[in-house]
Write a protein that binds this DNA or RNA. Structure first.
Length: 497
RNA sequence: GCCCCAUUCGUCUAGCGGCCUAGGACGUGGCCCUCUCAAGGCCAAAACAGGAGUUCGAGUCUCCUAUGGGGCACCA
């Protein structure tokens, strides 16, 4: 095997620009990025748009945005530039043509004039392309070419023997050459196929480690033979396991957008994670934990920490069912440990999107009592949206929300009525002072804390579920809290239909 | 059909021949705490796919089978 141990590490992510970024691709990119960072190397983004039919305009921007959101910096790429560009394959066409011709001239490849119909017939036999142009007389091939017949360039795969290659994750893998076909290197439209393009580019861009999904493993021997034909030092290859559906059946990459599993929505596109209210650090942590583990029995770790330990060699060889349920847990952990200022800024945009006008000072007061109860940023809306609604427009909730367990409208009214002087009499309106006084009050009127506190919660928030009652009232202020309690009293006095 | 890769609790994983009566985490169930919802604490159930070998000894090595994933395009 080629010794690459001393090479300067350069890894790359080389997606086709076919639309929004899929989480499966991002996970592969994350592994490549982590490895580059760990080795103090470089991470390159290259766009593989050699199939014109599949190219979707705007994809490159989407890819960049995904990396920006995740905080994964790119050293060289379409936006960053770099010494080995351009980083978009459609802008490197002459290079591929040059090297394809070189392979033909040196006898490693040949022009094939087989038509689509001929190919179809051959495929019908079950044996694939029969290499009919592999040893075609040069003079006749020249005639066909001169006559304007379209052709492709195919690689001359050894007809027998074995090709062995080393995969960083699973070791030596052997293949029977006879199983492989003479793959197309250059298409008749003048564009290269992946097989040629990635090798030419990885060579010219000095890529030291190629990371790609495991579906590329079967063509690994072909690529090895191409490297050999060029006489170039091959990079190390790591064929990454892929993400499967949550039930373990089928590739996740086949899902083109979020879907429901066991009644829960499962995001797969980067923008879907953003919209669902997940934090970028939580998503990175989540992804890093699939197929690789930090060690020390730790599930939660920062990107910085992962960068100290990550190694492609340690990646698990087996595919994984997408453990999406873990993301909710991780996300809530990240929310709990986030700095108030940071969380506030994220929550602010969520609230604004939901139509609220957000006062920064109030948000800062609310965030601490929310941190422990949000799974996603989106949860802020039902839990605490009322803090940011128009207070003047607040309306008392209906009796079914106001009246607590084992209470009725009469007892609820009594509790609320008698709470007013107690709250009014407090020297300070802090949550702890309220708590003390109201606990005593509950005892005196013979109701449980839950009944009294719950009545107040409903009166003041209009909800059955909310942050703690007294913390909430402290933020609302004494005046507004009492106003709402009186509103509730009025509502209870109204005859209900 | 042929070829390749994989296989530890429901799921993500630790384990690289004896430290394993298999560890952690999510999820699930129970208890505690508790003003709702959470969070937190404690406890519990839960796995080496099956079969042959190799070895004094196998979750760890080999082979077979089964199952899952993937490839066999002028797509990547």
């Amino acid at each position: 095997m080629t010794d690459n141990s001393n090479r300067f590490v350069r890894t790359r992510y080389a997606p086709s620009p076919t639309g929004p970024q899929h989480i499966g691709g991002i996970r592969s990119a994350l592994f490549a990025w982590l490895y580059a960072r760990r080795q103090r190397g470089q991470f390159i983004l290259r766009i593989e748009d050699t199939d014109q039919k599949r190219t979707v305009p705007g994809s490159i921007e989407l890819i960049q945005e995904s990396f920006d959101w995740l905080g994964m910096d790119i050293d060289e790429g379409p936006r960053q530039g770099g010494a080995f560009g351009p980083y978009i394959q459609s802008e490197r066409l002459e290079l591929y043509q040059t090297w394809a011709n070189w392979l033909v001239d040196s006898g490693h490849a040949y022009k094939c004039f087989a038509t689509a119909d001929e190919l179809k017939e051959m495929r019908a036999t079950g044996k694939g392309y029969d290499r009919r142009y592999r040893d075609y007389p040069a003079a006749r091939a020249a005639e066909l070419e001169a006559a304007g017949k379209p052709y492709v360039i195919r690689f001359k795969m050894p007809l027998s023997g074995l090709t062995a290659g080393e995969d960083m994750i699973r070791g030596i893998v052997e293949f029977d050459n006879a199983q492989l076909q003479d793959a197309v290197l250059m298409k008749s439209d003048g564009f290269p196929t992946y097989h040629l393009a990635h090798i030419v580019d990885d060579y010219h861009m000095k890529i030291s480690h190629v990371t790609r999904a495991i579906e590329w493993l079967p063509s690994f021997p072909l690529h090895l033979r191409i490297w050999e034909a060029f006489g170039w030092q091959q990079p190390q290859y790591a064929h990454l396991p892929v993400l499967l559906n949550p039930n373990g059946k089928g590739k996740l990459s086949k899902r083109k957008q979020q879907f429901a599993d066991a009644g829960k929505s499962v995001p797969v596109l980067v923008h879907e994670f953003i919209e669902a209210g997940y934090l970028p650090d939580a998503v990175k942590n989540f992804l890093t934990n699939i197929g690789w583990n930090f060690g020390d029995n730790r599930e939660m770790f920062s990107t910085q920490e992962a960068m100290q330990r990550f190694d492609l060699k340690d990646v698990n060889a087996a595919n994984s069912a997408y453990p999406i349920a873990k993301l909710d847990w991780l996300n809530s952990q990240y929310i709990q440990t986030s700095k108030v200022e940071y969380l506030a800024s994220l929550l602010k945009s969520v609230l604004q999107e939901a139509g609220y006008t957000v006062d920064d000072e109030r948000l800062r007061q609310v965030v601490p009592i929310l941190q422990v109860r949000l799974k996603t940023l989106k949860d802020v809306v039902p839990m605490a949206g009322f803090f940011f609604a128009d207070w003047a427009a607040f309306q008392a909730p209906p009796p079914d929300i106001l009246v607590q367990r084992k209470m009725d409208s009469v007892s609820t009214a009594k509790v609320l009525e008698e709470s007013i002087p107690v709250l009014q009499g407090l020297k300070d309106f802090s949550a702890s002072s309220q708590h003390g006084a109201m606990t005593q009050f509950a005892k005196s009127v013979g109701f449980k804390n839950g009944q009294v506190f719950g009545s107040l919660r409903a009166a003041v928030t209009g909800q059955r579920v909310s942050p703690p009652t007294f913390e909430t009232m402290e933020i609302l202020g004494r005046e507004e809290s009492l106003r709402r309690i009186k509103l509730a009293l009025q509502a209870l006095a109204q005859p209900t239909s």
